Computed example of a mutant assay.
Amino acid sequence: MNKLQQRSNRAVAYWLLIGVGMIMVQVLLGGITRLTESGLSITEWKPITGALPPLNDAQWQLEFDKYKNTSQFKYVHSGFTLSDFKFIFFWEWFHRVWARLLGVVFIIGFGYFIWKKSFKREMILPLVILFFLGAVQGAIGWVMVASGLVPEKYFVGHVQLATHFIAALILLVYTLWFAFKMLIPENKMIVNGGLKTLTLTIILLLFVQLTYGAFMAGLHAGPVAPTWPTINGEWFPHYLFNKEGLENYTGNAYMVQFIHRGLAYLLTILIIIWFVKASRQTSSSLFNQIKWLPLLLVLLQVVLGVLTVVNSPISNKLVMYGVLHQAVAMLLLVSLVWVYYVIKAPKA
């Protein structure tokens, strides 16, 4: 590869990494929106005109009146003033505007690199898939909001919330992987089939854990047992099987928290084992520099998880610790995808 093509690849990769950063901010804004119960404050999906917030008192009152028709207002926030409404409206509006800005950054970058002829032929299809994933994520977001705008629903559905969250993470990982392909040369990689398999296992398990984290948020599962290390004084609470079938494992707040805690402990153990194995690998300076990241981040994540659950009945602390918990979860995912990319399986 000539130096001109290398520079072009780096420029495209940096553009993609800017997108990765913006996706992470978008996910965190979604977390704030969820934890402040702001998600149903905008009751319509207007992809173009919705970019502007209300600009005068009459427009604010109109939006507030629309919100008053939701069950969330009637049964949860009936005491809200217009000022209270403006607060939750801001977070939902900012979450949607940031998504639009993210789309603009990708579109402008795409147009610029087309003009500069920076894309190789094999990049076109992955970029089309990238835009498709972004569009699907926007549609899932509206389906999620709509799930909470039906009678007798006070919040968005926890399954829809988890779907929206995981779709965002898939978009993040896809974009990150695309950038790595242009930034990390083969001579920076290591060959270790066993370590690669273990890394993939941890990543897949982390996605299950992240799904249960979204269930925790959607079901308000933290405040039902804001204790640690036990769950309301019990290691195996008697109310773990309050529901039947699959619903017990996805819709029972106690079981969801029990599984979320258990997976956290399992992931920590697996990453400690992974780190011990990775420490024996010294053939790549890049790998040596990044192999400590998963261990550091998972330990920090456990601490933040405990702080989040024990402070969950206190709304402002729940928002603070919950968002930090979510941020470190994404960094942990990024670190694992990074080391997974650098590890190659041996040739058959």
Rank of each mutant, 00 (worst) to 15 (best):
V97H: 02
V97W: 07
W98T: 13
W98Y: 04
W98H: 06
A99H: 08
A99E: 05
A99I: 10
L101H: 07
L101R: 05
L101F: 15
L102I: 11
L102N: 09
G103N: 07
V104P: 10
V105S: 14
F106R: 06
F106T: 10
I108H: 05
G109W: 10
F110Y: 14
Y112N: 04
W115R: 08
K116Y: 10
K117V: 06
K117C: 05
F119Q: 06
E122H: 15
I124Q: 06
I124P: 14
L125G: 03
P126E: 07
P126R: 04
L127K: 05
L127M: 15
I129G: 07
I129L: 12
L130A: 09
L130V: 07
L130H: 09
F131R: 01
F132P: 00
F132Q: 00
L133C: 06
G134S: 09
Q137I: 07
A139C: 01
A139D: 00
I140N: 05
W142C: 04
W142I: 05
M144F: 08
M144T: 14
M144W: 08
V145I: 12
V145L: 04
A146E: 09
G148C: 06
L149C: 06
V150D: 00
V150Q: 09
P151K: 12
P151M: 10
P151I: 12
E152M: 08
Y154L: 08
Y154P: 00
F155L: 03
V156T: 12
V156Q: 02
G157I: 04
H158Q: 10
V159K: 02
V159Q: 06
V159T: 11
L161N: 00
A162S: 15
T163L: 14
F165N: 01
A167H: 09
A167G: 13
A168P: 15
L171W: 07
L171A: 13
V173T: 15
Y174V: 01
T175A: 05
L176K: 02
W177N: 13
F178Y: 11
F178V: 01
A179P: 15
A179N: 12
F180M: 12
K181R: 15
K181V: 06
K181L: 09
K181N: 14
M182A: 09
M182N: 13
L183S: 08
I184Y: 05
I184P: 03
I184R: 02
E186I: 11
N187H: 09
N187K: 05
K188I: 00
M189I: 02
M189W: 02
I190N: 01
N192L: 02
G193T: 15
G193A: 00
G194N: 13
L195T: 11
L195P: 07
T197G: 12
T197F: 07
L198V: 08
L200T: 13
T201A: 10
I202T: 04
I203D: 08
I203F: 11
F207E: 01
Q209M: 13
Q209A: 12
Q209E: 13
Q209H: 14
T211E: 01
Y212G: 03
G213L: 09
G213I: 11
A214M: 04
A214V: 10
A214H: 10
A214G: 15
